[in-house]
């Protein structure tokens, strides 16, 4: 049985995402996928069984109404406040949605990104093998764009429904990274201060990147480095022309010419994506082997 969902309210950069569009880098298309992969999986886990695509919403939340049919939805990511009808529901959690019911997700005390998964498939056509919206390339999701109030989505019986394990972003403290492609172009003193100074998340963040404040001026004067353009991966910490550190996220450019000092490890990238503007952040270097062991621990 299918259902129709209407978006009553959506913040900016609300998009349809799935695991990602892998294998297209040769064509200049990065994978996209959820900003917080663990929360995306957790939202499915609350349902037990979910379609491959879900809705990623941003800090102002989202409101959806089932206008026809019925479905179940699971939600997770950050700490938002969910209400079904007039009744508050636990976060993260899952609820059945009947025709005419409205699920309102309001801003909460933590997080930038939350997820809605469904026991059905969002009926948008896969593009290059994925339903993930890539806003930079304008492909996937609903017409390659962000969702907005008034949009209507059909939910159909799920073709594949393998529940992912729950992988909640845990841990606190420093964000761990592996030294990167261009670490050597930064003088040792700059590298040392990168590890000891505080940085701050700014309001300039989207699915492509998160701009950081560098109050200690660690990278002041580090501009003017001209490098041959090379492959980029999600989590890369690049220093742009004016010395601002920018962490590249899921809709990153496939290649870039700014120097990259390191790459945030998979186990910490979800947690980083959820840090709100104003949050202080420190960076800690780890070895590749150590990063591997942390990621393995988290996936069990």
């Amino acid at each position: 049985m299918s259902a129709r969902l209407v978006i009553r309210r959506a913040g900016p950069l609300t998009t349809i995402q799935d695991e990602g569009r892998f294998g297209m880098l040769r064509h200049g298309v990065s994978a996209s996928g959820p900003m917080d992969r663990g929360a995306f999986a957790s939202a499915a886990h609350t349902l037990g069984r979910a379609g491959p695509a879900g809705i990623e919403f941003t800090s102002t939340g989202i409101e959806v109404e089932v206008v026809a049919g019925q479905c179940s939805t699971g939600f997770a990511g950050g700490a938002f406040a969910a209400r079904l009808g007039g009744r508050q529901v636990e976060w993260p959690g899952a609820v059945p949605l009947h025709e005419g019911e409205v699920l309102a997700i309001n801003p909460g005390r933590a997080g930038n990104f939350g997820y809605l998964r469904f026991d059905k498939t969002i009926d948008v056509p896969p593009v290059l093998g994925s339903r993930a919206t890539n806003l930079r390339a304008g492909i996937g999701g609903l017409e390659g764009r962000a969702l907005r109030a008034g949009d209507s989505l059909e939910l159909i019986e799920s073709e594949d429904a393998d529940p992912d394990g729950s992988r909640v972003s845990t841990g606190a403290g420093a964000i761990r990274f592996i030294w990167g492609l261009h670490a050597e172009v930064f003088p040792p003193a700059v590298r040392e201060r990168f590890l000891s100074e505080n940085f701050r998340i700014t309001a300039r963040m989207d699915r492509m990147g998160v701009w950081l404040d560098d109050p200690g001026g660690v990278f002041r004067g580090a501009s003017g480095l001209s490098l041959v353009s090379d492959a980029v991966v999600a989590g890369d910490i690049q220093i742009v022309g004016d010395g601002t550190p920018v962490v590249l996220m899921r809709d990153h450019q496939p290649t870039g010419g700014y120097p990259r000092i390191g790459t945030i490890i998979a186990a910490d990238l979800d947690r980083f994506a959820q840090m709100r503007p104003g949050t202080h952040v420190r960076f800690e270097s780890v070895s590749l082997a150590h990063a591997r062991s942390l990621t393995a621990e988290r996936s069990v």
């Binding site: 041959v228 999600a234 490890i265 998979a266 990621t295």
Partner: peptide, 18 residues
């Protein structure tokens, strides 16, 4: 030959374009 994060390897044949 160097790691680019935990899931990728970069094999680089020069530091400048030639």
């Amino acid at each position: 030959v160097l790691p680019l994060g935990e899931d990728a390897m970069l094999v680089r044949f020069g530091a400048t374009l030639s």
